[in-house]
C-alpha cells in the first residue's frame, strides 16, 4: 500500500514541479522566477523525503537538511542582490 502511495505522491510532486516550471518560464518579473525556483527547491525536499520513505532508509534526510540550507541562502542572496545590487556589505 505504501509503495502505491509513494508512487502517486512522486507523480504529484513531478506535476507540481512542472507547474512551477511554467511560472519559471512565463513569470513576468525576476522575482516571479526567483519564487518559482524557491518553490521547486522546496518540492525537491519533499521529493527526497518521499524517496527516503520509498527505500526505507534515512540517508536522504541529511541531504534534505543541507538542501534546505542551500535553497534558503540562495533565495536570500538573490533577493538581496535584486534590492541593493550586491550581496556582501
Amino acid at each position: 500500500m505504501l509503495a502505491t502511495v509513494t508512487s502517486i505522491v512522486m507523480f504529484g510532486l513531478a506535476l507540481s514541479m512542472a507547474l512551477c516550471a511554467y511560472r519559471l518560464f512565463r513569470g513576468p518579473a525576476v522575482v516571479d522566477r526567483l519564487l518559482a525556483v524557491d518553490t521547486i527547491s522546496t518540492n525537491l525536499l519533499a521529493f527526497l523525503i518521499v524517496l527516503s520513505i520509498d527505500q526505507r532508509t534515512d540517508v536522504y534526510l541529511d541531504s534534505v537538511i543541507v538542501l534546505a540550507l542551500l535553497a534558503f541562502v540562495a533565495t536570500v542572496a538573490i533577493a538581496k542582490a535584486l534590492v541593493w545590487g550586491r550581496i556582501i556589505d
Binding site: I8, R23, L35, N43
Partner: peptide
C-alpha cells in the same frame, strides 16, 4: 501532496 500541489496551483 495536497498542500504542495495547492501551493503550485496558487503559484
Amino acid at each position: 501532496l495536497a498542500f504542495t500541489l495547492l501551493g503550485s496551483v496558487g503559484l
